[in-house]
Design a protein around this nucleic acid. Sequence first.
DNA 1: CGGCTTTGACCGGCGC
DNA 2: GCGCCGGTCAAAGCCG
Length: 232
Amino acid sequence: MEGSGQLDTCLPSLYGLSPCAPPSSLAPLPNQNKLLQMPLVQEQLGNHGVMLSSDHHGGLYPLLLPGIPFCPSSAAACEKPTGFAPLDAVEAGTSAAKAAGEIASATTATTCHGSSSWWKGPAMAAEKGRAMKVRRKMREPRFCFQTRSDVDVLDDGYKWRKYGQKVVKNSLHPRSYYRCTHSNCRVKKRVERLSEDCRMVITTYEGRHTHTPCSDDADGSDHTGSCAFTSL
DNA sequence: CGGCTTTGACCGGCGC
DNA sequence: GCGCCGGTCAAAGCCG
């Protein structure tokens, strides 16, 4: 796989800056350990894009991205953070979503919303011999952000395993699907590049980690008490 | 040899 | 009802 970058960012500002406190079920954000230690930048907003969050009720929390580097380790590969938005917002076509227009254009967002992102209970799956995928009624919290990077997979502190790649309509670049390798953790993320600008990477996180980044490659047991964010 | 990626097939949801 | 589409599975191959 291509070299992973370092996502040393400040996504939890999502929480701190949100005008509406997101529900506790929101997914832990990348590199949450580092994030916890970073002071939230609440000034200098507005020059670097729009960050949005959503809960699984479809709520929208428009935020402005401070100038926090969303940088891969190959520093030259990253120039600036450019956006952060929930797909729900994009799909809803809200004004906030339009503010993150590049994200909207980069993600064939309707599919993220209505199709196989959500799962029903295991009962239906058991009806079929194959591990049939069925939809959940409840949505997992999702976060979409956009960075300019030469590498597809940013190092967010977690370990991911690629389980699929798909060419999506209206996109020149295939979308890659990753799943957290930690046992009992069903967090997924999608990575795709903008058609308009192949250096722009759209990363969508779905679900929440049941472990800390640092414990990711450990014995597989949960360490839900070791990080404040795991209580989310 | 184990873990990971690749890739084609399959499935269900949605729009028409 | 049908076709399109995104998302996932799983076998095969690759790599350290």
